[in-house]
Design a protein around this nucleic acid. Structure first.
Lengths: 222, 222
DNA sequence: GTCTATATAGGGATAGAC
DNA sequence: GTCTATCCCTATATAGAC
C-alpha cells in the first residue's frame, strides 16, 4: 500500500523469520541470524517490526491465515462427504509438506513456545469448522459416528508428526521427507486410516461422549 | 551408590528440570528458575551437573529409559497380538498422561530443541521394537497389513498431540486434560482407531510400501 | 555441598549519522 | 531505509569462602 521497496524486504524478513522460528523456536531464534540471512543489519529489522515478539505474531498470523484459506476452499468444494474428507487430508498433507518450518512453528506454538500466553482464537475456530462438517455428515449417516473432534485432532497431530518428528525419530521411514514420493505415501496412509475410521465397519465408539462439550463428571479438585 | 544427601537433591533437580524444560523448552528454560524451585542457589546446580546441556541430556536419558521399560514390559506380557496392541496403546496413553512435561520435552526434542544435534539412538530402537512386533503379527495374518511403522508413528504423534497441543487448540475437547476421565476417553478413542486399522476390513493399503527401508525411487535432487 | 560475589558473553533494543 | 555504535540486561558459568 506504500513504498514498493519496503514490501519486498518485509516479506523476505517474514519468510526467513518463519524458517528460523520453526527450526529453533522463539527463544532459540536470534534476530542477528534472521538479519544476516536476509542480508541486512540487525538494527534494520526494527524498522519493520518494533520487537521480536511482534515479528513472531506477524509470522504466526500469516501461517494461520494461509491454513484457514486452504481449509475453507476445500470445504466449499463439490463432492460427497467422504470425497471432501479425502480432499481435506490431501490438502492438509500438501500444506504441511510444502511448509515444514511453518508446521514446526505451529506445533511449537501449541506446545507453549510463545513468550507470554499468546493465544490465537484462530486455531479453535479453524478446528471447529472442520469438526462441524464431520458432525453434520455423521448426523446424515454419511460418515461413521466416531468422535469428530478426536478424529480431526488426531489427523492434525499425526500428519504434523510425520513430517516434523518422524524424520528425526525414524529416518528410515521417509528417506526423503519432503520429496513427492513421501508426500504421496503419507497421503495414502492417512487417507487409508481416516477411511477405515469414518466408514461403516465397527462399533459406534461411545456415541455418548461424541460431542459432550460439558461432561458433568470432571473437575477432580486435586 | 554414594552419599545419601546428594542423591535426593540430584533427583529433585532432575524432576524440576524436566518440568521446566518441558514447559519452556531448552532455550526458554532458566537455570535460575530450576534452582529457585528446588530451593537452592543457581550456582549449586553446577555441583551436580557441569552445564545446562548436560543437565538436559540427563533429563532426556531418564525419559527415554522410562519409556523403554514400559514398552518392553508390555511386549513381554501374555495375550493375543490384538490384546498386546491394546495394552501398548493403554500403557502409552497412561505414560503420556502421567508425565505431560516429559512428553512435551520429547516432542520438543524431536522438533529439534537440542542445543546442537543431540541425536538419541534410543528413540529409533524403541520404535523399531514396536514396529517389528506389528510386522511379525501381520506376517502371521493376525493383524491387517497396514504400514506398520506408519501406524506406530501415527499413534505416537496422535496421543502426544492430544495431551500437549489439544488443550491449547481445542480446550473444550478435554475439559480436564489430565483427569482420569480424559485419559479413559483418549484411550477408548485411540484403541478404537487402531482396531479399525489393524483388523480385517478394508483394502490392503499398498503392501509394497509397507516395509521398504530403501525405496529405490527417491532422492529428487532438491 | 551450599553459599556470595563476580567474570564473561550474548542478545534485544535504541540513538543518531547518512 | 540502512548503517555503525552502543546501551542495558540477563543468563551461563566460575572463583573461592564457609
Amino acid at each position: 500500500m506504500r513504498q514498493s521497496a519496503e514490501r519486498g524486504t518485509r516479506e523476505r524478513i517474514l519468510e526467513v523469520a518463519e524458517a528460523s522460528l520453526g527450526e529453533h523456536g522463539y527463544h532459540g531464534t536470534r534476530l542477528h541470524d534472521i538479519a544476516h540471512r536476509v542480508g541486512i543489519q540487525k538494527a534494520s529489522l526494527f524498522h519493520y517490526f518494533p520487537s521480536k515478539e511482534q515479528l513472531y505474531r506477524a509470522v504466526l498470523d500469516e501461517g494461520f491465515g494461509h491454513a484457514e484459506q486452504t481449509i475453507a476452499r476445500v470445504l466449499a468444494s463439490e463432492g460427497s462427504a467422504l470425497d471432501k474428507v479425502r480432499a481435506l487430508v490431501a490438502a492438509y498433507v500438501d500444506m504441511v509438506a510444502a511448509h515444514p518450518a511453518r508446521t514446526k512453528l505451529l506445533l511449537r506454538q501449541s506446545l507453549g513456545d510463545a513468550p507470554s500466553g499468546y493465544h490465537s482464537a484462530d486455531s479453535e475456530r479453524l478446528l471447529r469448522q472442520v469438526a462441524s462438517f464431520v458432525t453434520e455428515a455423521q448426523r446424515q449417516h454419511l460418515l461413521a459416528p466416531i468422535d469428530p473432534l478426536g478424529i480431526v485432532l488426531g489427523v492434525v497431530g499425526m500428519v504434523a508428526f510425520f513430517f516434523t518428528s518422524a524424520p528425526v525419530l525414524a529416518p528410515n521411514w521417509l528417506p526423503d521427507p519432503w520429496g513427492s514420493a513421501s508426500i504421496e505415501r503419507v497421503k495414502r496412509h492417512v487417507v487409508s486410516v481416516v477411511e477405515r475410521c469414518l466408514t461403516g465397519g465397527g462399533a459406534p465408539d461411545d456415541e455418548a461422549a461424541a460431542l459432550p462439550a460439558q461432561p458433568s463428571t470432571v473437575q477432580p479438585s486435586r
